[in-house]
């Protein structure tokens, strides 16, 4: 928050005190607004974490109260019943594989679509965009039947292919717009050096996609990590279950027990939070790259 305090050299009454310009007042108000917004967004998360350290009886007596002591029994119970470490490894493997594939295949497909602006390319982009608009319940049965026929049910490969396919339309759409804004002169210079199309993509275009890839990865990772419908549909072997399916075991049909669900939800989100924290600088620099010219 910045408030400018200008001391007038003229010594006039107007200039003796603090001088709030319109710009600084606006900036301060905006900062306060953003601060409230952040607090409002963090309250449910803070509530979930606080509740996860309280016993069921404590929560019933005072649902909004602070924990008087940290009760770890809920976490021990949740970890024991979630097959936690195995399911986290499964989720990490699937999420990272899908993110890498979506970034690579999406950018490869987007490069020619961005550069060849003929009718065919436009038609392909339109077709790909349809993938973004198709509701999940339309896809789910055909996907199941195709994967059954391919023998890919209950396999890591199957679930990775499904998530990759579901996220490719977004990726292609995203990268096409981004690559269109890359100056063609860069490619022409590479072509003068006898670079092939593949070499231009790999050595010129791909390194410029850092910011787009960072943003896209955020979306894809969140979507894949949090989804449990496709893992539930395609995976039947419990040892292959993702962490969200494990969390889901704590949700009742007719009631919710906060002391069971909240620690499981915290444990389910924790690996992704750690991952984001670890790559925070890289993601942020990627997201904001190009924002300032």
């Amino acid at each position: 928050m910045s408030i400018s305090m200008n001391k007038s050299s003229s010594g006039s009454p107007k200039g003796n005190g603090m001088k709030f310009t319109g710009k600084t007042v606006f900036s301060a108000s905006a900062n306060v607004f953003v601060l409230f917004l952040v607090i409002a967004m963090l309250i449910p998360v803070a509530y979930m974490i606080m509740m996860s350290f309280r016993t069921g009886s404590e929560i019933a007596q005072d649902p909004l109260g602070f924990p008087t002591s940290l009760y770890f029994g809920n976490y021990i119970n949740a970890m024991d019943k979630m097959n936690y470490f195995r399911s986290v490894v499964n989720s990490l493997g699937i999420t990272l594989s899908v993110t890498a594939l979506v970034s690579l295949l999406g950018s490869m497909a987007a490069y020619p679509l961005a550069r060849r602006t003929n009718g065919f390319s436009k038609a392909v982009i339109m077709l790909v965009s349809l993938g973004l608009a198709t509701p999940n319940f339309v896809n789910i049965t055909p996907i199941y039947i195709i994967f059954r026929d391919l023998g890919l049910l209950d396999s890591y490969v199957g679930i990775i292919i499904v998530f990759t396919a579901l996220n490719l339309p977004l990726s292609i759409f995203f990268y096409t717009g981004f690559i269109s804004s890359v100056p063609k002169e860069l490619e022409e210079a590479a072509r003068l050096d006898n670079c092939s199309n593949w070499q231009i993509y790999w050595h010129v275009i791909r390194p410029l996609l850092g910011s787009a890839t960072a943003t896209l990865s955020l979306f894809v990772m969140l979507m894949v990590w949090n989804d449990f419908i496709y893992p539930l549909l395609l995976l039947t072997d419990e040892s292959k279950f993702t962490v969200m399916i494990s969390v889901y075991r704590f949700v009742g049909n007719r009631s919710i027990e906060p002391d069971m669900l909240f620690p499981a939800a915290v444990l389910g989100s924790l690996p992704l939070l750690i991952l984001f924290g670890f790559f925070q600088r890289r993601i942020l620099s990627g997201v904001t790259a190009g924002a300032v010219k």
């Binding site: 789910i140 049965t141 039947i145 049910l153 889901y248």
Partner: peptide, 23 residues
């Protein structure tokens, strides 16, 4: 017995593809 837990709400989504897929 291989028991799979699927909530009532998700039964509507997950089981029909399996029924239609003869699996």
């Amino acid at each position: 017995i291989k028991l799979s837990f699927i909530s009532r709400g998700d039964t509507d989504v997950v089981i029909p593809p399996r029924l239609q897929g003869n699996n």
